[in-house]
C-alpha cells in the first residue's frame, strides 16, 4: 500500500474515532478491576494491579444476582410477547390492504417518541390499585409499549421482501391464511424476527425509568440496583463499575450482532 500523508491522517482519524467510542466503556471496565484505593487515587491511575475482588463481591451479593435474574426474566418475557403479538400484526401490515392502515402504522411508530414519564405516572397509579407494583408482570407489559412497535416495524419490512408469489401458490394449494403465515412468513422472515427480538431485548434490558418507579425490593432490575449503589457517603466504586460492566457486556455483544441494523432499529426506518 502506498503511504502518503493523507493515508496517515486518515488512519489517525480512525484511531481517534475508535478511542472516542471506547473510552468511557474502557474506563468503566478498568475501574471494575481496580481496588478502592486505586480508584480514589488522584490523579487517576492508568496502570495498576488488576484485582477480581469487585467481581467476587458482586457475584456473592444476592441483590446483584437477583437483579440480573429479574432483568433476564423481564427482558426475555417481554421480547417473547412482543414477537408473539407483533409478528402477526406485521404480516397484516405487510400483505393486507384495509381501511385505516396508514393511521395504524403511524400510531405504532409514534409510540417510539413518547416519553416514558407520560405513562409511568398513570401506570404507577393503576398498578398500585391492581396490586401489580413490584411484579415482573407490570414491567413485562409496560415494556411492550416500545417493544411492540419495534417488532412490528422491523418485521413488516422483512415480510414485505418475501415474494408474494409464494403466498399465492400456497393459496392455490388450499392453504388458509394462518397456515401461510406459519409455514411461509415465519420461517422466511426469521432473520428479521431475530433482529427485532434482539432490539427488543436491548431496549428492555437498558430501561431504567419504569423499573425505578414500578418496582420495590422484589423485582428490581439490574440498572435499578446499579443506580441504588450510588447513595451513601463512601461509594463502592469498584462494585458499581463491576455491576455496570456486567449489565453492559451482554447487550454490547447483542448490539454487535445486529450492528448492521442499528440505525434501522433506532430510527424505525426513517432512513434507508
Amino acid at each position: 500500500m502506498r503511504i502518503s500523508s493523507g493515508n496517515v491522517l486518515h488512519a489517525i482519524g480512525l484511531c481517534v474515532v475508535i478511542a472516542f467510542s471506547l473510552f468511557p466503556f474502557f474506563w468503566m471496565v478498568a475501574a471494575s478491576f481496580k481496588t478502592q484505593t486505586d480508584i480514589l487515587a488522584s490523579p487517576p491511575l492508568w496502570f495498576f494491579m488488576p484485582t477480581l475482588q469487585n467481581y467476587q463481591d458482586i457475584f456473592a451479593d444476592s441483590k446483584v444476582i437477583g437483579a440480573v435474574g429479574n432483568s433476564l426474566i423481564v427482558a426475555t418475557s417481554t421480547t417473547a410477547l412482543a414477537v408473539l403479538l407483533g409478528a402477526p400484526a406485521a404480516y397484516a401490515l405487510a400483505r393486507f390492504e384495509f381501511r385505516g392502515k396508514g393511521d395504524l402504522w403511524f400510531w405504532f411508530i409514534s409510540n417510539r417518541m413518547i416519553s416514558p414519564i407520560v405513562l409511568a405516572l398513570p401506570v404507577y397509579m393503576l398498578a398500585m390499585q391492581l396490586r401489580l407494583l413490584d411484579t415482573h408482570l407490570v414491567l413485562i407489559l409496560i415494556y411492550l409499549t416500545f417493544n411492540l412497535p419495534i417488532v412490528v416495524w422491523i418485521c413488516t419490512d422483512q415480510f414485505k421482501s418475501i415474494p408474494p408469489e409464494l403466498e399465492q401458490a400456497a393459496r392455490l394449494d388450499g392453504a388458509d391464511q394462518f397456515t401461510i403465515f406459519r409455514k411461509i412468513y415465519l420461517p422466511l422472515g426469521a432473520p428479521g424476527i431475530a433482529v427485532s427480538a434482539i432490539f427488543s431485548f436491548i431496549f428492555s434490558w437498558n430501561e431504567l425509568l419504569y423499573a425505578l418507579v414500578l418496582t420495590r425490593k422484589n423485582v428490581q432490575t439490574a440498572p435499578v440496583v446499579a443506580t441504588s449503589f450510588m447513595s451513601g457517603y463512601e461509594l463502592p466504586w469498584g462494585k458499581i463499575m463491576a455491576t455496570g460492566t456486567v449489565i453492559v457486556l451482554p447487550v454490547t455483544i447483542f448490539a454487535l450482532i445486529v450492528s448492521r441494523h442499528m440505525v434501522r432499529g433506532l430510527t424505525m426506518g426513517a432512513t434507508k
Binding site: S21, N206, P223, I240, T252, L256
Partner: peptide
C-alpha cells in the same frame, strides 16, 4: 466500535459519568 456507545445502558452511562 461506534455501536458500543449506542448500546450502553443509559443508566450506566450516568454511572460512568459520575466516575
Amino acid at each position: 466500535t461506534l455501536v458500543v456507545p449506542l448500546a450502553t445502558t443509559y443508566a450506566v452511562v450516568g454511572l460512568i459519568g459520575r466516575l
